[in-house]
Design a protein around this nucleic acid. Sequence first.
DNA 1: CCAGGCTACTGAAGCGCTTCAGTAACCGCC
DNA 2: GGCGGTTACTGAAGCGCTTCAGTAGCCTGG
Lengths: 362, 362
Amino acid sequence: MSQDRGRRPTLDTIALELGVSRATVSNAYNRPDQLSAELRERIIATARRLGYPGPDPTARSLATRRSGSVAVMLCDGLSSAFSDPALSIMLDALASTVDSGDRALLLLPGVDGAGPRAQSVMRAQTDVVVAYSLVDDAPSLEAVRARKLPLVVVDEPVVPGSARVEVADETGAALAARHVVSLGHRRIGVLAFELSADGHHGPAGLDRIKTARFRVTRDRIAGYWKGLAEHGIPTDEVPLWEAPGSGREIGTIGARWLLERHPRPTALLCMSDELAIGAVRAAHDLGLAVPADVSVVGFDDTPAASWSSPPLTTVRQDLLLKGRTAGDLALRMLNGERPGPPITLGVTLVARASTAPPAAPM
Amino acid sequence: MSQDRGRRPTLDTIALELGVSRATVSNAYNRPDQLSAELRERIIATARRLGYPGPDPTARSLATRRSGSVAVMLCDGLSSAFSDPALSIMLDALASTVDSGDRALLLLPGVDGAGPRAQSVMRAQTDVVVAYSLVDDAPSLEAVRARKLPLVVVDEPVVPGSARVEVADETGAALAARHVVSLGHRRIGVLAFELSADGHHGPAGLDRIKTARFRVTRDRIAGYWKGLAEHGIPTDEVPLWEAPGSGREIGTIGARWLLERHPRPTALLCMSDELAIGAVRAAHDLGLAVPADVSVVGFDDTPAASWSSPPLTTVRQDLLLKGRTAGDLALRMLNGERPGPPITLGVTLVARASTAPPAAPM
DNA sequence: CCAGGCTACTGAAGCGCTTCAGTAACCGCC
DNA sequence: GGCGGTTACTGAAGCGCTTCAGTAGCCTGG
């Protein structure tokens, strides 16, 4: 007879009811080979009868010292995460990898582009954390360090003791730049991501570029410049517009500004496919044809890139692989493996219909 | 002197070091008003010196019996979640609401459209779960019940004892149907969501429709039919194509099938804006103009609806409010509130440029 | 000068589980 | 018939924290 009336059943409830030890009941759930099939049956049956749902996850976590979840720290809120296909795709791959390791994803969204609050990280029940494209000096990274949690960084500068996966952003950007230059373009505009998490957007000058706090943005600018400089294009005259996000709407606004410069750029290098799609729209709005009047290059090669019209020339990165790799790394670190050398994924240029040689100079 | 060399510091480490009780150290973190500011300072300083990162979240959860996270059960993997703007937007609102209550989001993605595995739910460290548009008989729902976790269901049939928020789907669908009918359309096609989580897609007949296991799909079909039937259109002759997902690509495929019927429908009712955008594409591919040759109605009123060309006539639902409401409900249930009556959010028809009276009959 | 009320802190009882070192019983074998 | 080896199960020591009922000491007012 259960004397715990009203209280929710625990391992003890079952053990008492059956007159076996608590360890045995625990084994019934976790190590079926440690007891007779017959007893196990009885335990499970009794549990069901008494409404015991199985070992409490929190208590188990405390005892085993593993929480069973992988935390992901994002730079911004979820809406930006969800609306950025590149991030979505990679997060999905990460989630499936992690899930196949029987772990759940704990999402720690950032606030105001500065990443999650330190306190959210301090309170997160997790065994390992994956940081995605945070600013260099995010307080959340410090919190992870304080908790001595294994860390996997994605698209971020090196953090001592962490595993790392990233993409050859600089190389990719250089590919994009070389592509338009070799088509004959000389007047180029750049549609960039945020340089810092200060909510600023609009045209950005050299001084601001130099203090960029997002590695991805820095590297891609460096790549663009490298590609352009190789062909003698003075990079300090290349107009750059900083977009507070990676969505199309913003892309349209930024591209419009770029396309209204005099002389008008004949090619736009965009840091994401979404920005590029927005740029194509801006061109249309201004009565310019793509690629006849202006060439547009994206970045990422998301599904939307090939779907858009015209299909986008873009720099392809393997987003699925990036997510899977990050997931694998996280799972590995959980097993106590030491973080190996950083993994850098390659990029390729995919030439489609949004780029062409410039029209004859006016 | 700390005799725990090598072990990570705990509350006791600090307490011992300072010769105070463990309770006091705990209070230093959780109830600063319970000790003198001076002692608190010393405790925090010592903690920092010894590398103690603050109370362990898992142990705290066990002691307080609250985990601090809200689990969200999704029908499918994250990629579909991320690629469905309607879901993204609502999840984001949910996340911010929950985050402002200082809780993290634990994502439990589904597998094969059947929702999360029961085991994932059993092992999830969470205080409350939100279920989003799962099939009626999802095993995960049963798992939630077994664990006696508070449950908030979104866009789902009633689950006893749970809080519920949903959208007037049937009403919305009826609005859409009435809209096209009152424009004069008589030949209508329906581009629907999945009816069951069996991976099937393509044209669906009455028998299959009757056994639909997704409430949203069921309700919207019912709404469409109601709107059509009111005007004497025989609903059993309305072709319906079942889409395995809600993306544009699928929309294009389904719409093409619908537009190749004889007689060709002059209006397409689509269960999401993405499907509708795909349908517009299919029309173009077939050399049909929207809305001149075929009218298209979406559902949700996501940003893409107004952005697309032509801007989409659609049924607007307040996705942000839906997410916020679900978050609020979850937070409330955490505080032990009883689930109130279901909350149903209204819908309105937003008429834009993708619908028009049909061309004169051929 | 003492009752009453604070303030600042402590002790101990949990929270529900895992795990490890046993132990008792049994089995087969030379 | 004793011995090594299994099998099936138990006891107890944690895991790291919160919280509640105290208690000691001090202050205040009548």
